[in-house]
């Protein structure tokens, strides 16, 4: 499975467009990560705990996207776009939306 943000895959023309697909992952950072992240907010510096959470949410969203493409019989997803948002009452949950076009190369 080729997953790319570009509209085409060089040297491999698209034989079939299988439709726009999307997947999302909403993930809570948990109370301890929020606590550690809060400390980082006070003292400054990079928050590795939140970075890992975002990374995990992105991986989950891309995995789900690939599974959807696979179920459509695609062997590539082109034009992949990732959006990052916060959701929940206090914005404590992170949301990653991955979208793209499932294609057969």
């Amino acid at each position: 499975m080729i997953i790319t943000t570009t509209a085409i895959v060089e040297g491999r023309p698209v034989r079939e467009y299988l439709g726009v697909i999307n997947a999302q992952s909403i993930i809570g950072a948990n109370i301890f990560k929020d606590f550690l992240g809060g400390l980082r907010d006070v003292f400054g510096g990079r928050s590795k705990t939140y970075e890992k959470v975002i990374e995990q949410a992105k991986d989950d969203a891309l995995r789900e996207l690939a599974e959807k493409a696979q179920s459509l019989g695609a062997n590539a997803i082109v034009g992949v776009d990732l959006d990052f948002e916060t959701v929940g009452g206090s914005g404590s949950m992170l949301m990653v939306i991955a979208s793209g076009t499932a294609v057969k190369l």
Partner: peptide
């Protein structure tokens, strides 16, 4: 992810497949 050939008794010959591998399983799409 990989591209591969899926060989099954139900098919006449190998079929082109996409393979996704995650922590505890792989999925084969064809």
């Amino acid at each position: 992810t990989w591209f591969g050939s899926y060989i099954s008794a139900f098919h006449a010959g190998p079929v082109e497949a996409t393979v996704l591998a995650v922590e505890d399983h792989i999925t084969i799409g064809y």
